[in-house]
Design a protein around this nucleic acid. Structure first.
Lengths: 133, 133
DNA sequence: CTTGACCCTAAAGTTGTCTTTAAGGTTATG
DNA sequence: CATAACCTTAAAGACAACTTTAGGGTCAAG
């Protein structure tokens, strides 16, 4: 079975070698076997695991949360647990969206109101921030 | 005219004294006058400026952006400039909302699909992340 | 058999926004 | 006039998720 050097894994997965070592140090990637000269050799599955990490991050999970999910998989743990982690993340994301939407509304309104002409004194944007409209 | 110690300003504005000093160091708050014993004395306007900073942060502006806005006000600069800063921020916020909404949709779907029962093997959430659905 | 591309570790640096600590000096109160 | 509650500075620490640096060892091509 073909194995990979850290560089090959990096190229294949689009993750820098240092980052792979960092993930190992953080307990996200398991310690791989080593060659006689102490070089890391990764099995095929390492690429999948790395992809999982990359995707989970794209989904907004922190490394801590990704580690939770991976640990769960490694132990073939409870599906309820995975659902809990994802549901909590969903909550967080929804509340982030809520605050951003509030900000968006106010900001859009003031930007719209500002003529963009003249001096900043009296500018609706600046005034609104000052007054916390 | 009444002046304030840093502690009074902190209490009045809800910003910690160290944070006020930090803002001064970052060029957001001007260096105030000092008493003979080297204590900072703030004029009334300092509280307004601090409030502006607090509000702008709540609106999602970074300290760098807040400094831009304050510099603009200090120089009574161009309103067009203020509008540009706000419009750029609006763009950023909208694109943040977009990514979060995409994440929310996928996450909500998989959480919904997951029964929450049984082992994590085959769990729709975990599978979806692995496959980057 | 040398040169350049790889690999190794440990530690320090980055970014943003503070907070905490250390080691003092000052002022207000009882 | 002692003591607590303020104030001062400079520097270090915290957090996330890396990136960079320093100082080496190894391996493949020509």
């Amino acid at each position: 079975m073909k194995t990979f050097s850290i560089g090959e894994l990096a190229t294949a997965s689009g993750v820098a070698t240092q980052t792979i070592r960092f993930y190992e140090q953080q307990g996200l990637m398991p310690e791989p076997r080593r060659t006689e000269s102490n070089y890391r050799r990764y099995p095929h599955e390492a690429a999948d695991r790395l992809q999982f990490i990359v995707h989970a991050k794209q989904w907004g999970f922190t490394l801590d949360e990704v580690r939770e999910l991976l640990t769960l998989q490694d132990a073939n743990g409870d599906r309820a647990e995975a659902k809990r982690i994802a549901a909590e993340k969903l909550q967080k994301i929804r509340s982030q969206i809520q605050s951003l939407r509030r900000i968006e509304a106010v900001l859009a309104k003031t930007v719209d109101e500002c003529s963009g002409e003249g001096a900043v004194a009296g500018c609706p944007i600046v005034e609104a921030i000052a007054d916390n409209a």
